[in-house]
Every structure is written in structure tokens, then in C-alpha cells.
Amino acid sequence: MKRVQFEHSPIPYLFIAPQIIIIVIFFLWPAAQAIYQSFLLEDAFGLSSQFVWFRNYTDTIFSDAWLQAAGFTLVFSALVTFLSLALALLLAVKANEVIQGASTYKTLLMWAYAIAPPVAGLMGNLMFNPLIGDLYAFMNTIGFDFDHKLDSVDAGFVVVLISVWKQVSVNFIFFLSGLQGIPKSVTEAATMDCKSSFRRFWTITFPLLAPTTFFLMVINITYAFFETFGIIDTTTQGAPGGATNTLVYKVFQDGFRGADIGGSSAQSVVLMVMVLALTVIQFRFIEKKVHY
């Protein structure tokens, strides 16, 4: 049987070409380079190079430092994602109900959005400075023996706090617009049926926000994995004892500080696979529960 062939013009290809070219140059080609480099052991200047199969992988991934960073990254990402979504949702719901001065509230909650992670990190670092930091003094005044320079839980608290603070406003904007997208007729009908606003929220509002929540979850996990790099670099730099080192920061430390190109490439490839797996899980299993 002859397959049906449709004649089509090459113009659509021309239209998508710029996008494809950008993807190839800025994503596929570097990714291919990283995979290639991850099998090579080279001196930093690239003057002697040898193919070593999986040595870069075994050297780096089985090291205690990498495993520690992997553990922290997972806990950190889970905490940052959950807390920044939960807080933003709470704030959005409350701000949505405000009638007097609503736009002031909204603006105030939104404007941290414009702050870049390294700047947020620098400000947080200043506030937690043992000599002049107000938050450091505050934590110690209210009875905590707070010392993020040496205590790994305290250091984790600092980076989570700053990362969540930075991300809440982004989530807030999306949740707020999500809430405003819920038809008034639905909420009014619900109000007649059910007195408890708490139950109305979980049975009506939250399910209707599911597409927004799912989208934000994907965005936030990516944020926690990659973009918090700037916050780690300007605050703890992985200290104390590597307890706040994330996988991305370790790639940077080994590759850009330590000139170990093979080792850091291997780590990037593993990271790439991890994020790919995570994305597949999100879209295959969690998205099924989302009703658009």
C-alpha cells in the first residue's frame, strides 16, 4: 500500500529554524560536549587528553562529598519547593480576599520578584553576619544557640530561608492570577452549599488551581536545583563541612574553581539525567492527577 504523501512547502521549517538553531547551539551542542568531556581525562589546558571510560563518573559520584551534596540537594529542593509554594498560596488566597488597599498588598508581595538570587544571597548573608547581622542577633536573642558558620542545620535553615523568600513572590503572582481565573459563579455556588471556607478551599479552589500548582512545582524544582546556585555562592559556599553544598554548586567548584573538566562534566551529565528523570516522573504520574 502506498503511503499518503502530502505536499508541503518548506516555509514552516524556515519559521521554526531560528528556534531550532538556538536550541542546537545553546543546549544540544553544550550537552554533547559535556558528555564527550565526561569520558576524557585532560589537564586543564587540554594539552594531553585520554579516553578513560567511566573513571570520571566513578571518581566523583562515589566520593563522600558528592553523595553528601546529592542528599542535601534532594532535601533542600523538597523543602524549598514545598515551603515556597505553600507560603505563596496562603498569601495569594489572603491577598485575594483583601478589599481595602488590595493593590498595595499585592505590589508589596510581588516586588521581591525583581531580585536576582545572588543579590538575595548577599542581603541574607549580611543579615546573618555574626558581627553585624540583625537576624543572627535575633535568632540568638530568642534563645536559639544559632551558629550557621558551624552548625549544619542552621546553615541549611539560612539557605532555605533565603531561597524561599526569593521564590515566594514569583509563585504568588501565578497563584493570584490562578485564583482570579476561577469563575465567580463557581465560588458563589459553593458558598451557598458549604459554610466552611476551609472546606470550600480544599474541595473547590485547590483542585481548580491544580494546573497552576503543577506548573509552579516544575518551575520551583528547577529553581531549587539550579538557580539557587547564586544564593549558595554568596552565603555558605557549601559550608560547614560541605553540609549545604548542592550538586550544581559542586560542578562549579570542581570545574570552574578547580579546573577538573572531566570530573565536573561527569557530574553535569549525572545531574542532567536526574533532572530528566524527575521531569518524566512529574509529567507521567503527577500531571495525570491535574484537571485542566
Binding site: L150, S152, G238, A239, P240, G241, Q253, G258, D260
Partner: peptide
Amino acid sequence: GFYVQIREVMYSQVDNIFSGEA
């Protein structure tokens, strides 16, 4: 060689000595 990373190891172990973790 890789002394930048070795210093990194030093830093993190010194933290552990100070915090009593090691």
C-alpha cells in the same frame, strides 16, 4: 595538583573539627 580542591577539603574538615562532628 588540584590543590584548590584540596584546600576545599581542608576547609570542610576544619568546620567538622570545630563543630565537633569529627
